[in-house]
């Protein structure tokens, strides 16, 4: 019994799958810098751009949409808390004239307009980074990523392998959590995932099993000679055709352009000053 897991590598041969891992990492770095540094309006355009790229990832629509069921609830506190907190601290923040009012169920709620705007900006930036990371995660085989880190970036292979394990652990933990949910459903246990009871019933056993599994995996790796040799052999060498090099050049150029836009917007300078 197994399900396709939304946070793991999705096997495929899409154009994004064919781009080498290092190029995708460069692109992701560019997007992250851009998301943090560029004005928020630009991030909405970036989000649209990522949606446009998504069909080239080979990931089916259902898989693509599923993370939103997690992302959107995660946004809620980011969007709702700043208007309230900024309003409460309006004197200290110099937002005395920024207060707006919302009537809800006969109650009047005061909030900070700037805070609401700020919350939406965080959500937009988070979405850009989240979707870009997922596209890389879905289309990059962790093994290729490790090999690329070791052979192209000259990273020590033990550290590269730590990244690999972190990547493959995401679907494993997700799988554990899914099976645990099945068990709770079958045993008729009612719980809310975000409650303390839900945490105890769902998260703690999954964390426990995952930690123990982590120990077993380490044991298994050690027993199979991991770390015996200072230089690890990979059974295939990395050979990229010319067009991969050209794509990498184009991606590097695009990443530099994104970085330039982010710097030109002046946001980094403001962040540095503050």
């Amino acid at each position: 019994m197994s399900r396709d897991l939304v946070l793991g590598y999705q096997d495929g041969h899409s154009p994004l799958h064919r781009i080498d891992p290092l190029t995708k990492l460069i692109a992701l770095a560019g997007v992250i810098v851009f998301a943090i540094g560029a004005p928020v309006d630009y991030n909405f355009w970036m989000l649209l751009g990522l949606f446009a790229i998504a069909p080239f990832s080979g990931v089916d629509l259902r898989t693509f949409l599923r993370p939103w069921s997690v992302l959107i609830p995660l946004w809620v506190p980011f969007i709702l808390l700043p208007p309230v907190l900024f309003h409460l601290q309006r004197g200290m923040l110099g937002l005395a004239n920024d207060t707006a009012h919302l009537s809800l169920l006969g109650q009047d709620f005061a909030y900070s307009r700037y805070g609401l705007n700020y919350g939406f900006k965080i959500a937009a930036r988070g979405s850009v980074i989240g979707i870009a990371s997922l596209l890389v995660l879905w289309t990059t085989h962790p093994r290729d990523l490790v090999q690329s880190m070791v052979q192209e970036l000259r990273a020590p292979y033990k550290y590269a392998w730590a990244v690999f394990l972190a990547l493959i652990y995401v679907p494993i933990v997700q799988h554990e959590s899914q099976t645990r949910r099945y068990a709770l459903d079958i045993r008729g246990v009612r719980y809310r995932r975000m409650s303390l009871r839900g945490l105890r019933l769902l998260a703690i056993p999954v964390i426990f099993r995952s930690l123990r599994r982590g120990f077993s995996t380490a044991l298994s790796m050690e027993a199979r000679g991991f770390g015996v040799s200072p230089r690890r052999v990979f059974r295939h060498d990395l050979h990229y055709p010319l067009h991969v090099g050209l794509i990498r050049l184009a991606v590097v150029a695009a990443a530099i352009l994104l970085l330039g836009i982010a710097i030109a917007s002046g946001r980094f300078a403001v962040m540095a000053q503050s």
């Binding site: 590598y9 085989h141 962790p142 093994r143 394990l165 493959i168 123990r212 599994r213 077993s216 995996t217 044991l219 298994s220 790796m221 199979r224 000679g225 991991f226 770390g227 015996v228 040799s229 230089r231 690890r232 052999v233 990979f234 059974r235």
Partner: peptide, 20 residues
């Protein structure tokens, strides 16, 4: 609990790669 890699082929080659 002793599976380390993502695919069957990777898993089998894992120890052989470690031993160089």
């Amino acid at each position: 609990s002793q599976i380390t890699c993502l695919t069957v082929e990777d898993e089998i080659a894992f120890a052989l790669e470690n031993f160089g």
